[in-house]
Design a protein around this nucleic acid. Structure first.
Lengths: 155, 155
DNA sequence: ACTAAACAAGATAAATAAGTCTCAATCCGT
DNA sequence: ACGGATTGAGACTTATTTATCTTGTTTAGT
């Protein structure tokens, strides 16, 4: 079960980072990428839709970068993920039916509706401030830092 | 939000069809594919793991095909989906953390655990018989038939 | 004004998922 | 035993996602 795309993961991590730096001016895309272990040039592409949606302000040129526009309490994970993959449009039928309205529902319609509803509610109910608070309380979680290298001993 | 892969969708549809034909001998892969509007040769690949897991019996040669081994009341959607994408292994962290145990959890761990838990419970709690019953009660749903052609008037 | 530094945007490449094709192995009916 | 019909398994193609590269545009500082 893949909940959200990797782009969305990166977007949430980057926004969390920027929320932590809120009020400290522009942050370089490159720095964010390095700190979080996100492929450098790729992050640029990911931040773009966030700028378009008015979640980030970007400035080019020397001493440019990205910074949050709103306060972390005012930005939800739903907004961030939606910018990456149009959640509202995607929310498709679990069983792939082209039409799966309430009249013409698939067998799982009702149950799945509940599931995805609560998933979206989770995203919409969590603000960046919530995530930042979590990071402060439990720094050992390592979030939103770089995904640890695969240091397993397997061949 | 992509819940399950398309392979899993096809697998569920095909199994539903075979459940409807339960007790009527072998069904041709080709027939199933045509009836359900699933790419023909692809269905072969999809049915394979279901055979390996002991959910289907297959027979080659003339008058061969596929048929269900167990009764529809004894097969859950979880088994079917798991055969396609190893659900138990996949169930990863929502935020892409490599390690996301209870000690070293990501900010969404607890909530997301609930979400995916209830999703898996949904799959595990639904038997093919449930789906077949639904199809009998609401044939207008069109399930598990072919996904209707996109007949929209859009350019 | 000039230049270095940064984002913006489009083309390109690599990785993965979805789908197709080919041929071998197997089985039934005659 | 033979021949056609069907699954099984692997290589191959196509589509989508993820990631990189290149070039252009904007900005600050000198």
């Amino acid at each position: 079960m893949q909940a959200i795309s990797r782009s969305s993961e990166y977007a949430i991590r980057a926004m969390t980072f920027l929320a932590q730096k809120h009020g400290q001016g522009f942050q370089l895309s490159r720095d964010v990428a390095e700190t979080l272990g996100i492929p450098g040039p790729f992050l640029g592409k990911i931040l773009q839709p966030l700028v378009l949606r008015g979640l980030l302000h970007s400035q080019r040129g020397r001493s440019g970068g990205f910074r949050m526009i709103h306060r972390p309490t005012e930005v939800t994970l739903f907004q961030i993920v939606d910018a990456q993959e149009h959640l509202t449009a995607t929310r498709k039928c679990l069983l792939g039916q082209a039409e799966c309205s309430d009249e013409r529902a698939c067998p799982m319609h009702e149950y799945w509706d509940n599931c995805s509803e609560s998933f979206l509610a989770l995203l919409a109910g969590t603000t960046l401030q919530n995530v930042v608070d979590f990071c402060r309380e439990k720094p050992a979680s390592g979030y939103p830092g770089p995904t640890p290298e695969d240091t397993s001993i397997l061949p």
